[in-house]
Design a protein around this nucleic acid. Structure first.
Lengths: 207, 207
DNA sequence: GAAAAAATCACCTGAAAAAGGGATTGATCA
DNA sequence: TGATCAATCCCTTTTTCAGGTGATTTTTTC
């Protein structure tokens, strides 16, 4: 079979180096590019159209989250594997929201990266095993609701402390509409008031 | 002159790989070991006595901070360069307290690592230039309100999504009392509704 | 032992949110 | 082409919240 084309994006040269070394030891992949930021990466994607983009989550300028959205928008076929350090797993949900198919830690060993690439290449979802410290968290991730873009907007404004009328004015829609979105948010998050909503949203890194 | 002997400690294999590649490109250094944790590192220090130990700050089991103290205690002559990601710079002072002579970010390029090694080897202090943007951060930390224990209780229950009457029942007090606490919380956090309250509380790690 | 802070309780008002119902339009997709 | 979903809008009732004002009783602190 053809080799799986991979592009790696990370603002840390050290991580790029490490990734390059590791990936070069995997027979079935070929590195089509190493980028230090989303701009460079977009150029390289345009030039080479990789199968999979492995990207860091926290990068200056354009974050991995925004980057993922951009990729999915312009190249829906490209799979994305998010990469982060341990203490950033609150962003998992955001990455998944924005189209990531996999999530690995920077502490991942070669074998895990290999598995992640294969799994994602087959169209499945790969979540780092080191993430499942317990079953509860795993279950929780599956519980993270998928929000529409409008719902995300409304959620963000609610979190900022705006009331329905204020939000309605900002979005140029009727307060009734905002109320609908709000109700849908409560339903999706399975909570019964704003406090629970914001707490969960904060937990999942959505606000 | 003799080459500068360096040992690198990091729990992320990728970072070790990257460091190895980078350091091997610097003429005047030689890697005497790569360790994934403080235990391994102590063994390697014993065996080879490096001039400089470059260590990650956040590691499981023994943190970089404790590790630095250990090194300085047993091998006072060994210089230490702390390494971290961007969002950990609050630990700088602790590392310096514990004997680190240098601080670099994992995003450092080869040239900076080179400079850091030379500077530290000469007995001087090296601080990554990229660190200085924390006046706002400092201010924000000072803004975190001091809550009474009762307020913390109430805040936690609000965050759980309970209403004032429910909280009152749980705490065996009047709903009026809960309401008072709630209002004090809003005042202390300088917000005007629950959404803002929970968002801030989540940000500060209080819920 | 006095002063300050924390915790408690009370009442009122008006605004907002929650919970319930339903309806229309347009886009997307199988 | 029929189904689904997102986004929009509408209505009512009940409950909760936010803002204000004021007071008493513990507990802590100086």
């Amino acid at each position: 079979m053809d080799k799986i084309k991979i592009l790696v994006t990370d603002d840390h040269p050290m991580v790029l180096e490490g990734m390059q070394t590791m990936l070069s030891q995997i027979g079935f992949v070929v590195i089509t590019g190493l980028a230090r930021n989303a701009y460079e990466a977009m150029e390289l994607i345009k030039a080479n159209l990789p199968h999979i983009v492995i990207t860091d989550i926290s990068m200056p300028e354009i974050s991995g989250i925004a980057f993922a959205a951009k990729i999915k928008n312009e190249y829906p076929g490209v799979k994305i594997i998010a990469m982060s350090t341990f203490n950033e797993r609150s962003y998992i949900s955001q990455m998944v929201q924005n189209g990531a198919s996999g999530y690995i830690l920077k502490s991942a060993a070669k074998e895990e990266i290999e598995e992640a690439i294969l799994t994602v290449y087959e169209g499945k979802l790969y979540m780092s095993v080191e993430l499942e410290l317990n079953k509860k968290e795993q279950q929780e991730i599956n519980k993270i609701p998928i929000l529409t873009s409008r719902e995300k907007e409304v959620l963000a404004l609610i979190a900022e402390g705006f009331t329905n009328p204020q939000i309605a004015a900002k979005l140029f829609v009727s307060p009734y509409t905002v109320d609908s979105h709000r109700k849908n948010l409560l339903t999706k998050f399975e909570v019964n008031n704003t406090a629970g909503l914001i707490k969960l949203a904060a937990k999942y890194g959505l606000v």
